[in-house]
């Protein structure tokens, strides 16, 4: 199960639109998807026509007193499910702070769902808070929508700095992409050109500013379900493809023509060539049991 968080410190950049549409495209591509709407404004919940309500509120959910799986609702689309928002999520920072190891809490809550879903998408509220830190600790990657303006791009630097200062977030990938791009605006065109020349860390697909996106509130559904052939739907489909490639293509091994004597995790087992995984005795082959003592 991959956990992705659609996140930006800034509000109004298209986070919820991205969450709902990426989740829809992910489920269309054959993934089993859960959206967790963490924003007390509950816009993603509204788009999926689900009541914004958690039995017992967010506090009992976070403390593990409400069965999380029992709160999940199916959407109108196969294999796309939602853990709805609740207005009490506005106090989630405080609730997390009252418990032990608050940063690990969301990851712990998701653990039992690992076999049920291929992908969990968090729709996060803006700002940096304990909730966002808990999201960062649970996520494999942050998907960061950015409007092509100077102020918006500045928030990416703030986010990167925040991650770099925390060693436990070293493996967290940040995948920024441009959202609400209006090519009629000179500033947007300029930013696009500059980014193409200077930044290789951005996803190549950008989401156009589109009236179809604004109609999501009317249809209460992802764009692809009512405007399949629109440029916005095509952009979200392409963006999901790109994200999948980033997350699932094997990363090349570090340079060096001769392999090291010990076999780090992920490298092939010396017996059966299966990738080794961390086990109780050190690195172990899940196929033949070959173990490198740790």
């Amino acid at each position: 199960m991959k956990t992705l968080a659609v996140y930006n410190i800034k509000g109004g950049v298209g986070k919820t639109t991205a969450t709902v549409n990426l989740a829809y495209e992910a489920s269309r591509s054959g993934a089993r998807v859960l959206v967790w709407d963490l924003d007390p404004q509950s816009a993603a919940t509204f788009y999926f026509r689900v009541a914004a309500h958690i039995e017992g509120g967010g506090k009992r959910l976070v403390r593990g007193k409400t069965d999380l799986a029992g709160q999940i609702r199916g959407t109108d689309f196969p294999n796309l499910e939602l853990l709805p928002a609740d207005f009490s999520y506005r106090h989630m920072d405080r609730v997390l702070g009252q418990g032990d190891a608050p940063r690990d809490r969301l990851r712990e809550l998701l653990r039992p769902l690992a076999k049920r879903y291929d992908c969990v998408l968090f729709d996060c509220p803006p700002s940096i808070s304990l909730v966002s830190e808990s999201v960062f600790a649970a996520a494999d990657a942050l998907l960061v929508p950015l409007i092509p303006t100077t102020l918006s791009l500045r928030t990416l630097n703030q986010l990167s700095a925040f991650r770099d200062e925390r060693p436990h977030l070293r493996d967290l990938r940040v995948l920024p992409f441009l959202s609400m791009v209006d090519r009629r605006k000179r500033l947007h065109r300029d930013v696009l050109e500059r980014l193409a020349a200077r930044r290789s860390d951005f996803l190549h697909t950008h989401i156009p500013y589109a009236s179809e996106a604004e109609k999501m509130g009317l249809h209460r559904a992802p764009i692809g379900s009512y405007a399949r052939r629109s440029p916005a739907a095509a952009a979200f489909e392409q963006l999901w493809d790109e994200i999948q490639q980033q997350l699932y293509e094997p990363a090349p091994l570090p340079n060096g023509s001769v392999p090291e004597v010990t076999t780090p995790a992920g490298r092939p087992c010396v017996i059966c060539a299966c990738p080794l995984a961390a086990g109780p005795r050190g690195l172990q082959c899940p196929n033949c049991g070959y173990a490198e003592e740790g």
Partner: peptide
């Protein structure tokens, strides 16, 4: 119960699918 639903044809080989959870599973 659904393991997956996708708008496409069944590939000849799993490796022909794009990288992603469906391909992996």
């Amino acid at each position: 119960g659904l393991e997956a639903a996708f708008a496409n044809t069944v590939p000849r080989f799993a490796r022909e699918l794009r990288p992603g959870p469906l391909r992996e599973r």
